[in-house]
């Protein structure tokens, strides 16, 4: 196959149908921007929930009289657990100090001996912070002989998890719906562009061009449109994210892969849209 000829024909096609190419590029870029925004929303929603989960602490109260060696061993064991991201040891003295700080009362004036047990505060990896996994984790560490009691904010976690799931399902459904609508929109735009050039396809078939030779310029054209759409969408998202950061949400998270993802989706949609559309004219 003559690649130069194919490239040249692809460019000629674009030049010849400038208006439909511009419409096609604009619809791809608009569509990709919407996909990008829904992706941003999903990522940031996940980030917000991760942050909330990172605030959820599991308090592991130790039996009275557990010696320092056992405490050290248990701490090591907990820290090694892949589900755990942070382990903080709270000695009895530190617990008393925190109590006084939080409640403004000096317990030593009421009771002679410090009644508070030593404990560990554990923060789990957000990936393991589902109610079931937390329950499993808690049941597991409750078995240790050094542990007296394990407490955590079960209701809050259940509540968060429930609403996060609803939000995640809603966001995924929305993104899927958006993707389907956008794919149909892009396919139709490309189909119209190719339909307006069915004569050239017919001529190519008549003079004995192979199907791949006929398709190639259209595929290249579709990919160029996809690349252009991806670049424009990246620009739109750049402006959008800056605006959101400045006005509403300074902590807005923009995934590193975003631009490449949009470019990739753009090329893929441009290519597959052209492939399917041009195939309709290539029965025999």
């Amino acid at each position: 196959m003559n690649i130069l000829f194919t490239l040249k024909e692809g460019m000629i096609n674009l030049k010849r149908a400038r208006l439909s190419a511009v419409v096609s590029i604009l619809s791809i870029s608009l569509a990709l921007s919407l996909i990008g925004i829904s992706l941003l929303a999903g990522e940031n929603l996940r980030d917000i929930f991760d942050r909330v989960y990172q605030q959820v602490e599991i308090e592991v109260f130790l039996q009275p009289g557990v010696n320092a060696g056992k405490i050290k061993q248990l701490r090591k064991k907990l820290a090694r657990d892949t589900r755990v991201t942070k382990v903080i040891y709270i000695s009895r003295e530190k617990a008393l100090e925190e109590f006084q700080k939080n409640f403004g009362e000096d317990l030593s004036t009421i009771i002679e001996e410090n009644p508070l047990p030593a404990s560990f505060r554990i923060i789990l990896d957000p990936a393991n912070a589902s109610p079931k996994l937390i329950e499993k984790f808690v049941a597991q560490i409750s078995q240790y002989p050094e542990v007296q009691e394990v407490l955590y904010q079960k209701e809050i976690i259940n509540f968060l998890h429930k609403y996060f799931r609803i939000a995640a399902i809603a966001a995924s459904l929305f993104a899927l719906l958006l993707f389907v609508v956008i794919t149909i929109l892009i396919f139709n735009t490309i189909r119209l562009t190719i339909h307006s050039r069915r004569d050239i396809i017919q001529i190519m078939r008549l003079v004995g061009a192979t199907n791949w030779f006929i398709k190639s310029p259209f595929l290249i054209e579709g990919m160029i449109q996809g690349i252009a759409g991806g670049i424009i969408a990246s620009g739109i998202l750049y402006l959008f994210t800056n605006l959101v950061r400045d006005i509403i949400f300074p902590r807005l998270l923009v995934p590193d892969y975003m631009n490449w993802f949009l470019l990739g989706i753009g090329i893929f949609l441009g290519w597959i849209g052209s492939y399917i559309s041009v195939n309709r004219y290539l029965d025999y």
Binding site: F5, I203, M204, V207, G208, A209
Partner: peptide
Amino acid sequence: DRNVYENVAFSLRVIG
């Protein structure tokens, strides 16, 4: 949109 030469040449170009 092509001249006489290009129209005729096209059928040879597309077969490589």
